[in-house]
Design a protein around this nucleic acid. Structure first.
Lengths: 226, 226
DNA sequence: CCGATTTCTGACCATATGGTCAGGACTATG
DNA sequence: CATAGTCCTGACCATATGGTCAGAAATCGG
């Protein structure tokens, strides 16, 4: 039954992490958590919460399933952590908004930042979308607190720009929805976009063109000169 | 074990369909298929393919699970049928595009139609989004054939409008992506929008405002007078 | 009214899944 | 080297799920 444990260990355990410079013990936990979170993000994005299995996540992380459960006791706690991380990245993109003098800079930079996230964190965007689409069963509290506050703050900022005559008097919420949906579309529906691009991923130039198109149409659409 | 079958039947079977005028046998199959498809659409939208169970779908349809399997042999075949139906609705919205003289009519009507679908078929939109987000494992063939053709056709039409000087020389594909994402956002992220609307569903007036905002920003953004 | 066809269903099965656990292995420190 | 604390893992379990099936019930055609 447990005859050749040493052999198994030799074959499996020690050589798993290729970049394993001997790191302090304290970091081991964080290190493995990051590996698992990254794997989980991808699996959740590909299969959804229900379709994902702890076994698949463990395989993607290169760890035994029981080891994943050692760091994240339940599938839901792991999922919550993944979604929470995405939410943070998501909100950080809004900094560009705050520091801007007017809508051309603020909204333009925000669109750029969100497009960049769609490009670099497509899996995260999909997990977020999936979560919200299913009624946000796990992170409803985030929506009701942080997102509501954040949105109200942006609405105020946009209204100030409108009153200053810097842009057309549009409904700020619908503008935000348009920015969110359009930018995230390049992540969430990336597969469809790729299929429509002769099944090739968007090139760097195509990404630049996408960014430029989105910015141009939206900014012009709200009466902001580019 | 099977003592009171007649009682069960009395309680359960005969009064299930309220509008059950005695319909011909031929229609029974179609009728139940529709009931099941409608239930499945909602369950798939709420829980994703992986999270949905045949039992939940059966419950939502008011039928025993085995009966659902009588009409749809596998979960995947049922899912495929649901997605396929959505795809049809989805494409029909494009008719408005074809019959238009210029971009103001064509794109405006298309946006209206897509917003209306988001409003009336939110579950379907979510199932579609979920399917595409996960790499379209079931309906990739639809994407590669019908959607590609449809898109190319629209791109040609838009380019003709551009060459005729009826709108700005934007990239038609990115315009289509913007229309798709913005309109479908009101279905796919309806829960988020509702949360940001004091947890109340959009009223009729708010839906009208949403439509108007989307149309205004996009049409103005591409240089089309409203 | 009768046989044939379709519809319906409870009971069942093989499998897969989330999660547990006892104990082994490793690492740091004294 | 010894001890303590952390990390790791194979084996296991209770449960849930997709799917099957024999046969009952209803419906239809004549």
């Amino acid at each position: 039954m447990h005859v050749d444990h040493s052999v198994k260990k030799f074959l499996k355990a020690p050589c798993m992490k290729s970049n394993a410079a001997p790191i302090r013990k304290q970091n081991k936990r964080r290190e493995n958590e990051v590996i698992i979170l990254k794997a989980a993000e991808k699996v959740f994005a590909d299969l959804g919460f229900g379709g994902a299995t702890m076994q698949l996540i463990a395989d993607a992380a290169g760890l035994p399933k029981a080891n994943v459960h050692y760091y994240f006791s339940t599938k839901e706690s792991l999922y919550r952590q993944v979604v929470s991380n995405i939410f943070d990245v998501w909100l950080q993109a809004a900094d560009s908004f705050e520091e801007a003098a007017g809508p051309a800079d603020g909204i333009g930079a925000y669109i750029d930042a969100k497009m960049e996230i769609s490009r670099t964190h497509p899996a995260g965007s999909k997990v977020w979308a999936s979560e919200v689409m299913h009624g946000a069963p796990i992170i409803q509290d985030y929506l009701e607190t942080t997102l509501v506050e954040w949105t109200n703050s942006r609405v105020t900022a946009i209204n100030a720009w409108i009153e200053a005559g810097l842009m057309d008097p549009i409904n700020p919420r619908h503008l935000l929805y348009m920015i969110w949906s359009t930018t995230q579309h390049y992540a969430d529906f990336g597969h469809q976009i790729q299929t429509l691009n002769n099944s090739a991923p968007l090139s760097d130039d195509q990404w630049d063109a996408a960014k430029a198109s989105v910015k141009q149409i939206i900014l012009k659409g709200i009466g902001v000169a580019i």
